[in-house]
Write a protein that binds this DNA or RNA. Structure first.
Lengths: 193, 193, 193, 193
DNA sequence: TATGAATGAGAATTCATTCAT
DNA sequence: CATGAATGAATTCTCATTCAT
């Protein structure tokens, strides 16, 4: 009886991959470095992933999965729009602040040329509950009458950009600022009276 | 008044560089391909750029320059906040829609590991008039009391993301939607009563 | 009287080795594949063979042994040259047709760089009875006065080549053809009147 | 104006490839060694050949081409079967003796798994004149009534095998022996009276 | 013995950069 | 200046062999 393929090892590979991209930029992602960072031999990497692209795709998918789970993890008891919106927004924001490397990894590799569009479409489906939520709100006249994609862009993009800004200026996001950022998200989609 | 021959050639190199990144992702940016796309020999590229990084940095800087020029190009006659805000926002939006590849190039290569932070800081200075404008508005109580970086992120990020969305769904941004997107930007930064 | 367990396992390794070479060419002979085809683990292979070369050499020797045994297995009662020649030729031919992979394996790996010449010389000795037989016939004026090696090449080479041809055109070797092929072998070595 | 891709360089690559296979067996064919032997850098090899397989295929095809040209190069004046047969056979034999590495390369790589069967079929067509020649002779009752493939195997295979034998025993093929070998080829295909 | 995941030396391939023309 | 073939260091990937279980 021999050692089984190790899920924990895969996880350390994923972590190593993300960490290296964060440190060196996507241009610096070398299989040998990933292996070293994960504490395994180069060849071992190829037991778990057929090639570099498979690795990147898997990390991309997993990360999207995590993001989506984080977004929906906690839904407030009251099912009114305001509560759920606030709950989900903070879910997302806190995940982003706590795991900036994951958010940035997913954003960056979207345009690496390594992620086939089929994979992108597949991972997009993870966020369908959010689409449904926004469509309902729109029909109910609770938010502006705009395409869901536009609304989603409006709500998520500033968060991603702030992660980048935060690197330069880490004290930027104090408690008061975060409330302000939420306030902007909330105000932005209000319907006109 | 036409550009000198060399400047034309450099321009075609820049264009080729951007086009290739747009088509193949940053992973597919090969010096040989840039040369071919620009209609010159590989060696010729090295007459104009010392190495790959110089090329990318130059294109990055130039692009940022263009974006900044576009943003400030047209300033409405009336100097009131609302008019200028609206004017600049549409300047920016129209440039982005007309030159998505430039916006995306600048965004993506920010994290390539090829752009030194000194260069990033330098190009950021191109947008100082915007910072001043926002600081003034904030002091005058016209917008939310938040750090300028946060406000800028709020205003620009959704536009960038919409460019990506537009690739998949080109009809998305009709006239009415654009007004809606502006509306969101405007609403988002309003101070609380 | 069945083989001991280990010998059975070794035999399945040999078979696997030959089968893989036949299917994928010598370029495709991987230790891991041999193990899988033999139904054992990669590591187990190394209990029976010290390294890849040992395996190939063993299979080579065994195969040569089998070929030689097949050649001499049945010797006609009458000891006249014609009968023995015919008998041995058909022994050889039938073995070749029934076990093309073994003949081809032995031929191909002769030039792999994996079989030391000492091994080749050793296996050549398995065919000494044939040499003696041909020398006798030559001295008796029953066949052409040529070096034994030349005669052997003349007699065996066409058979090997026909195995390759047969792959493309399996119906080629009907009963009548086989008689014709024997006829050619026989005619070719007749002394001149 | 720059250096043009060099046909002479390609030829030196082909020669290097064949020489290395002859010296080290097909198992020892390394791209780096081919480059070194050809007097160029490894990368240069990839300007001329996309990958290792392309190289092997090209050398295979070229070699088959050469063999076929050698076979038909000199056709005796008298068009009678005997003269042409003798002429072509010696054409072939002399080429084989002078270029054993080419004959052996072509034979060995046939079963490397690197030559697609389409390529094999294509190169086989180079020998169609020989097929036609043999079919004519057969219809005219000049040779045994056997499939052309069988006759060709009978005629060529012993020559190939003798090349291998000659390596061990270089003096084997003196003038008299060669006449004897031809004699065997000739006798072998004679029709029965 | 048996297992098959792990290893890492080594082979194939890429591509930024150079240089002879 | 312009060319594009040539270079070779750097990188990806393979696979014979080892070893912990």
């Amino acid at each position: 009886m021999s050692k089984p393929k190790d899920e924990q090892k895969i996880e350390s590979i994923r972590t190593a991959c993300i960490r290296i991209v964060l440190q060196t930029g996507f241009n610096g992602l070398r299989m040998a470095d990933v292996a070293k960072e994960a504490g395994i031999a180069t060849g071992t990497l190829y037991i778990y992933y057929h090639d570099k692209q498979s690795l990147v795709i898997d990390v991309f998918q997993r990360t999207k999965q995590e993001i989506s789970e984080a977004l929906f993890r906690f839904t407030p008891a009251g099912n009114d729009f305001t509560s759920v919106f606030r709950g989900w927004w903070f879910n997302y924001f806190h995940f982003a602040i706590s795991n900036p490397e994951k958010i940035l990894f997913a954003e960056q590799f979207l345009y690496s040329g390594l992620i086939p569009s089929a994979v992108v479409e597949e991972t997009d489906r993870l966020f369908l509950p959010l689409d449904a939520f926004l469509v309902n709100a729109r029909e109910a006249g609770l938010i502006l009458r705009l395409d869901t994609e536009i609304i989603k862009a409006q709500l998520t993009a500033p968060v991603h950009t702030l992660l980048k800004v935060k690197e330069k200026n880490p004290e930027l996001l104090d408690h008061q600022s975060v409330e302000g950022i939420f306030q902007m998200a909330w105000q932005s989609i209000q319907p006109q009276k």
